[in-house]
Design a protein around this nucleic acid. Sequence first.
DNA 1: CTTAGTGCACTATATACATAATACACTAAT
DNA 2: ATTAGTGTATTATGTATATAGTGCACTAAG
Lengths: 122, 122
Amino acid sequence: MDFDPMKPIWVQVANRLKQQIVTGDLPPGSKLPGGRDLALAYGINPNTAARIYQELEREGVCTTRRGMGTYVTEDDERIRSLKESMIRDALERFLADLAGLGISGKEALIWLKKEEESNDHQ
Amino acid sequence: MDFDPMKPIWVQVANRLKQQIVTGDLPPGSKLPGGRDLALAYGINPNTAARIYQELEREGVCTTRRGMGTYVTEDDERIRSLKESMIRDALERFLADLAGLGISGKEALIWLKKEEESNDHQ
DNA sequence: CTTAGTGCACTATATACATAATACACTAAT
DNA sequence: ATTAGTGTATTATGTATATAGTGCACTAAG
């Protein structure tokens, strides 16, 4: 994973894990890698990895049991609402970016369709 | 302007100025505020303001003349291509966010409509 | 020449981030 | 009891960011 120097690593990895959770790639109740293993997997420091799990627990996405590890929550409703809010965030950020560039939502759809068409033609 | 604690202030203000340039709010050749004034306008430190203008000059968006100030480039083509790349960046970031959540642009529109409907029912 | 506005350079401080290294405590399995 | 795997805590170092304050040099205008 290549990191954006403009955002803390722990934020970026936490977002990646949340993505894997809401897509079902990391199912409810499944065990996450140990802190040291997560650090190895992402090429980061174990301290940073620990911070990531602390953040996921703070958000109610994971539960941590000392000596056992960190697990994805089994609360399906929580995961569903997390996915919804992540989609909403992406959408709002996109529209805010375009608004700052003086582009309306309607114009944004034109750009979006143009982009999808060019992808279809690949 | 409220700043995102996850990104450097100088990046955020530089982006805001670039937005104003590509929308014509800051026309080609126009004079930008002095470093100290920019700092006052955004509630930031003059050193940070200076760094912002250094970045804009590095990107070829502005030119700085010692003792006179910083001015928007008069190269219309440069401004046009900047706008295009900013739109493309916003679009690609949006689609990358959605891809990470396992959904296509088309599905995102469904979510958006669902969102709008639930807002209508409030 | 003097002045105001400006860019630029420098030192200093505080905070967050990320790293490194070490140690301790808990749990499950042997 | 021992072991491996785990979370947790601590101290330390280096870098980037942002702040604060000061001073100097250049430019245009009076």
